[in-house]
């Protein structure tokens, strides 16, 4: 990579790196994206005319496990960022690889869940619940997939020695994205799984 030997450029007005500001503005924008999907889900909550309904089919124990997996992956990532910051690239690679593995595990849970639902007779075409549920969790899954690819990219870049101290920000940015995906899941798990199932049938009409 070429960004080695050039003269220091003008620092930014705010002192924040351009890429970091870009990432945060993007995350703010993504809040509106997931907000709209969640709004759609909630507006149609309790409006499906045929089953299966959320309380028939959502499996709280299994999803709790996958939620723990995603929370743990965020913890792994902060350890990898800390390792990278102090220059311990080997530890960085271990932790970032663990993060990617946990992310993939979460995706595995999601594939399992989707297949199970289809088997039980819930597809996006079945009813409004299916339509809104698969769209919302599917787009979250797509975000996780992009995150896993990003983490693995960092892992391989580091293996090839291309992720030195000058690339700390690249690790930081991937982390911001990864943790954002985690907090979106915190909301989805609470709203759709826990609250949605606890409220049971017939609420929200």
């Amino acid at each position: 990579m070429s960004q080695v030997a050039h003269a220091p450029e003008h620092p930014t007005v705010t002192g924040i790196d351009n890429r970091k500001l870009l990432m945060w503005v993007f995350l703010a924008s993504d809040c509106l994206f997931f907000g709209s999907l969640i709004a759609t889900y909630l507006i149609y909550f309790g409006r499906s005319v045929v089953g299966p309904y959320p309380h028939d089919i959502l499996d709280i124990p299994v999803t709790s496990v996958s939620t723990f997996v995603l929370l743990l992956s965020s913890f792994m990532f902060v350890l990898s960022l800390a390792a990278h910051t102090r220059g311990d690239y080997k530890a960085f690679r271990v932790w970032v690889f663990c993060t990617a593995v946990l992310g993939s595990t979460f995706l595995g849970f999601q594939v399992f869940e989707f297949q199970h639902f289809v088997h039980e007779g819930l597809t996006p075409r079945t009813n409004l619940f299916g339509t809104t549920f698969f769209t919302l969790t599917g787009f979250h899954g797509a975000h996780v997939t992009i995150g896993v690819v990003w983490l693995l990219t960092l892992f391989f870049l580091s293996l090839r020695g291309k992720l030195g101290a000058d690339k700390n920000l690249a690790v930081d940015l991937a982390g911001l994205y990864w943790h954002f995906v985690d907090i979106v899941w915190i909301v989805i798990f609470t709203v759709i799984y826990l609250t949605g199932v606890a409220l049971g049938p017939g609420v929200g009409k």
Partner: peptide, 8 residues
């Protein structure tokens, strides 16, 4: 991730 700013 790219830009004009210092990489560090």
């Amino acid at each position: 991730a790219h830009g004009n700013s210092p990489a560090a």
